[in-house]
Every structure is written in C-alpha cells, then in structure tokens.
C-alpha cells in the first residue's frame, strides 16, 4: 500500500457507524482501506445499502468517520472540525448528487454560483467562470431561467456546472445516471470523460453497468455490507 502522502485519497480502516449504541445502529462503512490516485476514474460499485454513499461522503469530507484515518491530498481529515472539513470540501471537491439537489426557484446562474458565495471572489469573476462552464455544457442560453422550468437533462447539466464552478480537483458523483435514460447517461459519461482528460479525478458510486463497464474507469472498488469485497485496477 502507498504512503498516505502519495495518493490523492487514502483511507485506513475507516468505519462509520450511524446511531451508535442505539437499537437502530448501522455500521454503514466497516474498516475500509482504499487508495485513489490523482487522475483516476474510480467506481464504487455495489447494491444499494452496501455503503457506497456513506464511503463517498466520508471521502468527500461531508462527514467524519467513527474511527480510522482518511487522507485527502496528504492531509489527515478524520479529526478536523466541521468548519475545516467544509473548507476542504469547498476547495477540493465538486459534487453531483443523485437527485441533482438544485434550488428549484432560483435561476440557473444562481444555482451554479452557490458554492462560490462563501469564497468571496469578485462578482464579475464569478459570473465569468460560471458562463464559461455553462457554455462548455451548452446551456448558456438557459442562464436566467428558473431551474424548475428546465428538462431533466438540462437540470443534470446545471448540477454538473455547479460541481465545476469552484474548480475542484476531484469530482464526486453519487448514482449520477439513476434518473437518466441510456442516451442521456452516455452524454453524461462523455462529459465526465472530458473532465478526466482535463486532469480531474473522478469518483462515482453506482450500480449501473453502463457506468462501471465504461472503458474510462481505471479503478473499481466493489462493496458489500459496508466492506470492500474486491478492488481492481484496469
């Protein structure tokens, strides 16, 4: 196994227990040790309830592990305060959620800019960034519309644009194709492939064969019952 500092993401015996010591205690992630390198397209594969999403949120600095160590870009994040975790999350990760998680009554532009509000860039710079990204995704003419009025595919693109606006190194996607048909899924994968070509590391949790059998996947982590069942490089 590599040293924590070398890998982009490195975990050791990471465990996450929800509702500890209660009747409904859940051991969502159980002593997981994985490594993800810079430039990887890593897939967390497994049936629902296998702990993919929980592991994803641990890696994405959304929550703290009950025990174990997690290094992101050489930094131990397992014991940071919530505020510092947030700062790392904001600087390093872009998130694409299963159900887009957009603010339906706000405009496309506003939704895309959301992650930048606490950063404090100049508004002109923020808009420039957002416009560039929206253009790249072909939805710049939708900028002023409310998200509510967009089609599913367009909403997905807004969600991607939002994940990119803070210029993250790592894109984290949780079941990104769950609500898309084959054609739209293929479009999405093309976008992700492009991003990987631009040097971004991509981590996807999925149980969709269209995703995990895709040629661009470099690392597959199979999960079941909160544990890693198999890890494979391709």
């Amino acid at each position: 196994m590599k040293e924590p500092a070398e890998a982009l993401i490195w975990t050791e015996d990471v465990t996450k227990v929800y509702n500890p010591r209660l009747p409904d205690e859940v051991r969502a992630v159980d002593r997981v040790s994985v490594t993800i390198d810079r430039g990887d397209v890593a897939v967390l594969k497994g049936p629902s309830g296998s702990g993919k999403t929980s592991l994803l949120s641990l890696i994405g600095c959304m929550s703290r592990p009950t025990s174990g160590r997690i290094f992101v870009d050489g930094r131990d994040v397992a014991k940071l305060s919530e505020s510092l975790l947030t700062a790392i999350r904001r600087e390093t990760f872009g998130f694409i959620f299963q159900q887009y998680n957009l603010v339906p009554d706000a405009s496309v532009l506003e939704n895309v800019l959301l992650p930048l509000y606490p950063v404090g860039l100049r508004p002109s710079e923020m808009k420039q960034r957002a416009n560039r990204i929206l253009e790249g995704l072909g939805i710049e003419n939708r900028r002023r519309l409310k998200v509510r009025k967009l089609s599913g595919g367009e909403q997905q693109r807004v969600a991607i644009a939002r994940a990119l606006v803070n210029e993250p190194d790592i894109i984290v996607a949780d079941e990104p194709t769950a609500h898309l048909d084959r054609q739209r899924s293929a479009d999405l994968l093309r976008v992700l492939e492009d991003l990987n070509m631009q040097g971004k590391t991509i981590i996807i949790a999925t149980h969709d064969a269209q995703v995990y059998d895709h040629v661009f996947v470099t690392r597959t982590i199979e999960m079941g019952d909160g544990r890693v069942e198999a890890e494979r490089l391709s």
């Binding site: 500890p20 703290r64 592990p65 009950t66 025990s67 014991k79 919530e82």
Partner: peptide, 14 residues
C-alpha cells in the same frame, strides 16, 4: 473531548 469522533462530540461542536 475533541479526540472523540462520536456523534455526541459532533453535536457539541455544533
């Protein structure tokens, strides 16, 4: 107990 990763500690931090 800052070294604890328990839910209780998280609640305290909040």
């Amino acid at each position: 107990d800052f070294n604890s990763s328990s839910e209780e500690q998280l609640v305290l931090e909040r």
